[in-house]
Each structure stands twice: as structure tokens, then as C-alpha cells.
Design a protein around this nucleic acid. Structure first.
Lengths: 341, 341
DNA sequence: AAGCTTTGTTAAAACGTTTCAATTACGAAA
DNA sequence: TTTCGTAATTGAAACGTTTTAACAAAGCTT
């Protein structure tokens, strides 16, 4: 039950190993069409498939791309992941995973191991390097040393630093749209449930929120900001605080926390949107399941996944270090959770 | 910026390549402790990490495990996935992914490619081989030919056929618990929203449902069965039909469809649990967010993930084909969506 | 018919490891 | 001192490819 090697194909076809290799390769070479076809036929009859480790040893890279990611639980992350995998597959590449629960330090060790496996590129799916802190410095060296193409999600700085390409979302604009929607409905005291303020993606959203306020000549009031952590629980906790600040509307920096909001709203006898308008961010599919479907900011998960994959393939194939930053602009999905004041 | 090889370590240490290899290996050998320490120190100073493709070429396998899975969107699946990855990592293994959206045929081609990459084992995370139909026959041959250890999720038949190990959930018991819960609350006409009836996991649940009915001496009535597809939408569609059958309670074969049920309940002016009791299956975290938290059957995602990984490691390390079938028994999580009739 | 060119094929080196068998070094036993 | 046994080290082959340079055969030019 030994695997069939190129040697077997050579023997079976009567040609030399070199000829077989050439015939099977996509690259132009001087093998005659007749020979090529004969060999290919035999190879396929024998179910020959080249030992990728031998190929990799010779060519210095395997058809694999490493992906570093935390939090697959998040359906949006999962969706991007699947899209990347499917897109990459079209080019014959596979994803090799490196999930990190944020407690675990994202270890250099592991990344080095992937590099040693001959991956052709690295995708930094999340979290963004900006939020990795000192960990990023350690990783950066390993990545730079490996000299592999790298594509990051929500990592515009990668591109600025000429380290890699980036595919990101214009969170500022998304937050602007969400806030404007509430302002247009006549709300003036709009609470925010943010993510950790240290995170870059949180800051962007905060910027968008402020810009919208400016456009409507409303002063930014820090007491309306509740710092959450993008988890359901913090949405629940935010409610009593923000109600105390007398808000009539809340912009939740992600849908997850909006769900928490919905949950605790009931215990406070608050009905959405009658007593409180809510806008979320992410537009996950559960939004439609809520008793009042959640108005949210839609992010193009599929497109983002495809972009990441395509950009990676481009960098690999063109052996290019001509990095670019691709930005997707989200849009508002109006459902029922926000209404005129 | 060339990668440092064993040759570099040899040169730097003054020892031969063989000695370095031996010193760095975990296996017992005759290198003196002194030499071993000296070499290891130098190797680490040089940031040497063995080229896995060369290692693989020689040893015939890389420290990777292939995982075949559809539907990462499902948070339960995602959670099992992450757990497997984290557990496998402890042993130095990485996961290499093969996601399939069910439309795509799960191609033999891809699997062959993974085998050619020297993976050490295959995890069939989902769907179960039972539901793969003729596709399974094709896959099976490739898998058997590769002679790799295989661990399946919800694939007890793998073990029976002596092909691989299996980690599964006792869906029959779970369904029994769900149904009994409703029966004990005095319900007698209990509707079911099933998954596709062709799926094995659906049949198991149906069996559990029937057993509970028998225990309470209630006749099984086929009109109470609505065939769904485990997606939200079919839960919504089930409601008008089952209401027409005059049910007072519904057992949804997964939480997703229960969500659909909740959604459409509102449009029918039905309040859960006042007018209708509902029990779900899966116990995803979202359950708690609903206006009425969903009573559901809890499945031990973490334990399952760890079991799958550990079993895979066992099969690899012991080079064993002594397959086993591990079964987890789910339990009832009582929340608020079902009440006494 | 000799010299080029083109076309098709192949031998051999290289990639970075592991591992077996061989070699050396060194005390201890004779 | 020679011989032996053991411990430590190493040379070389092998793993399955790709690729370069060389070779052979055939087709053109003059």
C-alpha cells in the first residue's frame, strides 16, 4: 500500500523521471505533446499525486497559507474564514490554522513552526496588530525574517509600514451612518456602548460617532459613552447606566452587545423601539430573529474574505511586495429597532 | 536572509550534522549530555527550526491533521473546531482545513492533496459520513488507501466498520430528555420540527421523541412532525403548520429553528411560553438573549473537541488501529420557554 | 556533406532532514 | 602491551521531487 511516486510513473511509461516531471508540470517545456499526453494518462491511471513535501523541499514553499485568528465563535469571523478557504482552494492553496484564544499568548513558536512548514503566506485575520501590543513586536520580527507575503484584516498600518497588504472596513463611516440615522430620527442624547477603548477599531467608530454629532451641531458628551468589551454581557450592563444618563437612543458598537441590551431591556420594563431606539454594528444573521429586528451596519463578509484571499494569491504569484490597502465601506440596514423620537 | 539549517548549527557547534540531528531529537541516543546541551544552546541561539518539509520527506509525515468540515457559521461547530485546534497544538500539531459548503462536492481531489502534504490523520468534523451518500464511497477509498488514522464527529459507523474512531452525542437521549420535559409539564400534543429526515442525527432525535411518548403512553402521530432543514427559516415556516395541528408545545431539533419559531410567533400573536412551550437542541449562547430564554439540550462542545483531538493523538502516537467510539450524553438546560400546560 | 539549429530526452545535483552502519576514542580487562 | 567493549561521533544513503546542463537525433542551411 505504498504511495505511488514519480518513479513508478516513469517506470510504467518508459520515460525518465525528468521527462515525467516536465510532462506533468504546467510550465512550458520541450516535451512533445504526444509524450506529455501519454505520461499524463498513465499518471492519472496510477492515481499519482506528487509528494508535496518533496516538492516543497525543492521549491521552498508548499501550497499553504497560514492564518492567525482568535474568536472563531464570532459568526462574522467564521464567515470570513470560510470564504477565504473556499477562495484559496480555487488556486490550489489550503489554509493552515493558528487559532488563539486571547488568553493564550499568540506564540512566536507556533508561527515559526508554520514557516518551517513552508507556508507561502500569512493571513492575520484578527485581532489587528495594533491591538497585539508588545506581542506584535515579537511576531513582527519572525514575520519579517520569514520574508513571506502577509495580508491583514483591519490592519491598515501593515500597509503603511510596508509590511503587508490590508483589507479593512471603514468603521468610521459605519459609525457615522449609524449615528446619523439616529440623529435624523430626532434623537439628541445618543448613548454609545463601545468596545475596549484601547482597540483601534473602537476608536474609529467613536470618531464616526463624533463626526455625525458635529454635522448636527450637537456637542459630544463623554458621559454618554459606556465602555464595553464587545461581549453580550457588557451590553446588558450598559443599559442601566445609559438610562441613567437619560438617553433616548443607543448605538452599540457591535450586534453582540446590542443583544445584551435587548435582554436586559425586558427586565427594566423598556420596550424597543418605543422607549429606546437601538442601532447595532455587524449585521449578523441573528439580528432578524430578535423580537424587534435590529437595525444595524452591514459589513461585507464575503467580499472581505475573497479580497483577502485574492490579494494573498496576487502577492504570492507576482512575488510582489507592492502592498495595497483595500477598504470596504459598510452600509446601513434599516430594520425595526430605531424610530422617530 | 536565508533560513538557518541544521548545517549551520553543525558548523557553528563544530559537530557533524548527524550529531546535531541526534542531539536535537527527543529520542534516546548516545550523544553525551554535555554535547546535547551545547548543541541545543547553539541551535536556539541561531533560532534554528527544522525544515518540516525535509523532516516530512524523510519521516513520511508532517505534524498536521486534516479536518473536513462544512458550516463553520454554526457556532457550535466553530467552538468544537477551536477546541480541537488548541488541544492539538499542545502536541505540536496543526490543523489544516478543508471546509466545504454542501453545494460544493467534497472533492476527493482536495483530500488527496492533503494526504500528499503528509498529514498524519484526518478528522471528519461534519457532515457525518452517513449523510455524504455516494460521495462517501469515493472518499472512503481515498482514506483507506492513505491508511491514515481517522476520527469522526457523530460517525459511530466509522468505528463499527473498523475505519476510524468516533466521538458523538447521544441525540436519542437528548431528544428523549427534551420530549419528556414537555410531557412532564402536561403537554400531550407535542409538535416536532425536525432536520432533513434523511439525516442520521435527525432519525436519532426522532427515536428519542418516540421513546418518550411511549413512556407516557401517548401514541405517535405523524401529523405532528414537520420536516425542517436545521435553518432558521424552516423554523418560521413550521409554526403555522403545527399550530394548525393544534399543538401546545414544540420540540425543535435545533436552536436555530427554534429562533425561527420565535420570530414568526410574534406575527401570529402567539406568546411563548404562555400560548406555546418550546424546547430547543444545542444550547448555543444566543439562547439566553431571546425575550424568553430558550430551554434547550446542552451539548458539551469543549469536551467533544478535546476528545476528538486526544483520540487523534492517541491513534497517531500509538500507531493504533484500535478504534473506539466515545459518546457524550447531553443534558437538559431548563430556562423559560416551556411551562406547565 | 558538413555545420547549425531545433526538438526531445535524460543524468545528476540539490533541497534539509533522519538514521543505519561504520568509525574512532578511550578505559578496562587480559 | 594487546585486546575488547562501550561510548561518542560521523559518513553516507535515502526520502521524492525540480531543474540545469548535457546529450542525441533529426531537420535545415549552405
Amino acid at each position: 500500500m505504498e504511495r505511488v511516486t514519480i518513479k513508478d510513473v516513469a517506470k510504467a511509461s518508459g520515460y525518465s523521471i525528468s521527462t515525467v516531471s516536465l510532462a506533468l508540470s504546467e510550465k512550458a517545456s520541450r516535451v512533445s505533446d504526444e509524450t506529455r499526453n501519454k505520461i499524463r494518462k498513465i499518471a492519472s491511471d496510477l492515481h499519482y499525486s506528487p509528494n508535496q513535501m518533496a516538492v516543497g523541499l525543492k521549491t521552498k514553499h508548499s501550497k499553504m497559507v497560514g492564518i492567525i485568528m482568535a474568536d472563531m465563535q464570532n459568526p462574522h469571523v467564521a464567515s470570513v474564514f470560510m470564504t477565504i478557504d473556499n477562495e484559496l482552494r480555487k488556486y490550489g492553496y489550503s489554509l493552515i490554522c493558528c487559532t488563539t484564544n486571547d488568553k493564550d499568548v499568540l506564540d512566536v513558536q507556533r508561527l515559526q513552526n508554520l514557516v518551517a512548514c513552508g507556508i507561502s503566506g500569512i493571513i492575520l485575520a484578527n485581532p489587528s496588530i495594533y491591538d497585539l501590543g508588545e506581542n506584535w513586536e515579537k511576531l513582527k520580527n519572525t514575520i519579517l525574517a520569514s520574508n513571506l507575503p502577509i495580508v491583514g484584516r483591519d490592519n491598515a498600518s501593515l500597509c503603511e509600514e510596508k509590511i503587508g497588504s490590508s483589507v479593512s472596513v471603514d468603521y468610521e463611516e459605519g459609525a457615522y451612518l449609524a449615528t446619523r440615522h439616529l440623529l435624523e430620527a430626532g434623537h439628541t442624547r445618543i448613548g454609545c456602548i463601545t468596545g475596549p477603548l484601547t482597540m483601534q477599531v473602537t476608536q474609529y467608530r467613536l470618531d464616526g460617532y463624533k463626526r455625525a454629532l458635529r454635522d448636527f451641531s450637537i456637542d459630544y458628551d463623554p458621559v454618554l459613552i459606556y465602555e464595553g468589551d464587545y461581549e453580550i454581557e457588557s451590553g446588558s450592563n450598559a443599559l442601566p447606566y445609559l438610562l441613567g444618563q437619560n438617553v433616548s437612543a443607543i448605538f452599540s458598537f457591535n450586534d453582540n452587545m446590542a443583544f445584551g441590551l435587548f435582554r436586559s431591556a425586558r427586565s427594566f420594563g423598556i420596550t424597543i423601539p418605543r422607549d429606546l431606539s437601538v442601532v447595532g454594528f455587524d449585521d449578523v444573521s441573528f439580528d432578524e430573529v430578535l423580537e424587534v429586528p435590529l437595525t444595524s451596519i452591514h459589513i461585507h463578509a464575503r467580499e472581505i474574505g475573497i479580497s483577502i484571499a485574492d490579494e494573498m494569491i496576487r502577492l504570492i504569484n507576482e512575488d510582489s511586495r507592492d502592498f495595497q490597502s483595500i477598504v470596504y465601506t459598510p452600509h446601513l440596514m434599516v430594520r425595526g429597532s430605531a424610530r422617530r423620537k
